[in-house]
């Protein structure tokens, strides 16, 4: 991907360090921070290539989340959880000047409560970083 396509002035290396902390949660496989239009900003993953695709699909899901929230008369999209038989995906909006979201993919070893709590904490830290 072309660096020019990402918002400039995002401290990508610091962001990646924050994503690594999520990697410590049992069961977490991939963590991707991406722009609202689906470009990967930073990631932490065992699988090469996966983050770029997750960024694109994750941005569609965020946008669809916003669309259905608006349709239902709710406030804007904040978080969505997708559960499959052998894992969980959490997509959360990251507050801040750049419209971004975070996607976390975990396998069946994860405890949902623990994952959500860790994701919230990570998003707060990312938001603080972006606002600096």
């Amino acid at each position: 991907m072309n660096a020019a396509m990402r918002p400039s002035r995002v401290p990508r290396e610091l962001a990646r360090k924050l994503l690594e902390t999520l990697g410590d949660v049992v069961g977490v496989k991939t963590v991707v921070l991406f722009t609202a239009d689906g470009f990967e900003v930073a990631s932490h993953s065992a699988e090469v290539g996966a983050p770029a695709r997750i960024a694109a699909i994750g941005s569609s899901l965020s946008a669809l989340g916003s669309a259905i929230s608006a349709e239902a008369g709710l406030a804007d999209f904040d978080c969505t959880t997708i559960q499959s038989v052998n894992g969980t995906i959490v997509i959360t909006r990251v507050e801040g000047p750049h419209a971004m979201s975070l996607a976390v993919v975990a396998d069946e070893a994860v405890t949902l409560g623990q994952l959500l709590w860790a994701v919230r904490r990570c998003c707060t830290a990312l938001a603080k970083l972006m606002n600096e």
Binding site: N2, R6, D37, E71, A99
Partner: peptide
């Protein structure tokens, strides 16, 4: 229309 438009970063 229902739209799912977001800010475009790919100005190239």
């Amino acid at each position: 229309p229902v739209r799912t438009e977001v800010a475009n970063n790919d100005r190239m």
